Amino acid sequence: MKRKFLLLLSMILVLILVVQPYDGQALSEVEKIDKQLKELKNEMEQTAKNQKNAEKTVKDLTGQKETTKEDIQALLSRIDQVQKKLEATQSNIAVAEEKLFVTGEELQEALKQLKNREELMDSRVRLAYTTGTASYLDVLLSSTSFTDFLDRYDAVESIVTQDRNIAVQKKEYSVEVAGKKAQVEQELKEVKALYAEMENRKAELEKNEREKEVMISQISKEIEEMEEISEESERQLTELAKKASALEAKKNTIKNYYKGGKLGMPLKSDYRLSSPFGYRTHPISGKKKLHAGTDFAAPSGTPVYAAETGVVIVAQSWSGYGNCIIIDHGGGLWTLYGHLKNGGILVNKGETVKRGEKIGLVGSTGQSTGNHLHFEVRKNSEPVNPAPYLK
């Protein structure tokens, strides 16, 4: 009699002990999604490269018309319009990717719960096999007293209820896992379509940028180096960087790399300090506004280096900044590298780069009419004077 009752107790104990969190998958669903996104992005970029028809002559770009300052201003406006469309697509991608990661986390949790229920059911089967069959009725009829009968009844009812719940939950989690997997596939398709749209926008923007280069080369003696980054563009980029930084922090990729002291110079080759941090009057618009960074004039293609170790949170084209990189060094410190040439972004979002690592190439993309690096240092997302940070 006692043996049967002890068997019931051991079965309850097994039910309690085997419900442990499942962490045995070699690669989590979120990591798988991250890998798939990188593969998708690479695939889209390669497709765009294969389809791109680069112009070969000046005539292809500008025709027979003599270039004027007005032509350049009109082209800069056109570039800004295309850029805004690209930004909208990039924002949609950011939202879609974040949604995809949330779905991945939900799938991971559902898989974990399903695995737990499967292991629990396997344990129950093994227990029944090793201990032999036990009749619940025999256990109840073997009671030595009414109190003992009630105790045994409660134990039997608990086991039966838990067995039933395990079976029901396993079925529910199986359905949920199937649904989440289908949702991940659908969301991946949506992201892929957005990537394709983004590459088309980038191709159109690069064509305009190449045209701008030709125009500026024809009129270079008549136009001074000019950069126009609107306050709205700056604000939107800051918001994008904040969201990207929060997502990377959630993935535990951002650490406090910056421990104080001087940052490394972003340029190692010869350069000219063409515009310092501070308020200035714009040469074209005549408006006075804060220039949030330091401009280093240098030839197109001059290597740009990371000023400190950190995680890349932005690596894309953005309005007046053109091709732009932002690195989060932890502790609220960011560095920004703007106007990089087409093909001049040499790192990817989410990548960890080391101090002094080559990350880009000087150019004149965005609202710029001269090859230079626009370099910013931001503390808690606000621009500060880079000079005290640099060697």
Rank of each mutant, 00 (worst) to 15 (best):
K212G: 04
K171M: 08
I219D: 12
E234M: 04
G179Q: 08
N200V: 11
E228S: 11
L188I: 11
Y195Q: 05
K242W: 06
M215A: 04
Q236W: 02
E206G: 14
E227I: 01
Q162E: 10
S174E: 10
E228D: 14
R235N: 09
Q169W: 03
S158K: 14
V184F: 00
S158I: 07
E199Q: 10
V156C: 06
E209K: 08
K221Q: 15
E227M: 06
A249F: 02
E199S: 09
R210M: 12
I159T: 10
Q169E: 15
I216T: 00
G179W: 05
R164E: 07
Q162P: 02
Q162C: 04
Q236N: 02
I159G: 01
M226L: 09
E222H: 04
Y173G: 07
E248P: 00
V191H: 01
A249D: 10
K180G: 04
K212M: 05
R210D: 10
E157W: 04
E211M: 03
T238L: 09
S233Q: 06
E187K: 13
E231K: 14
E209R: 03
M198T: 01
S158F: 12
K221F: 04
S245C: 08
I216M: 03
A182S: 06
N165I: 09
K181Q: 14
N252A: 10
K192I: 09
Q169M: 14
M226I: 09
R201T: 15
E224A: 15
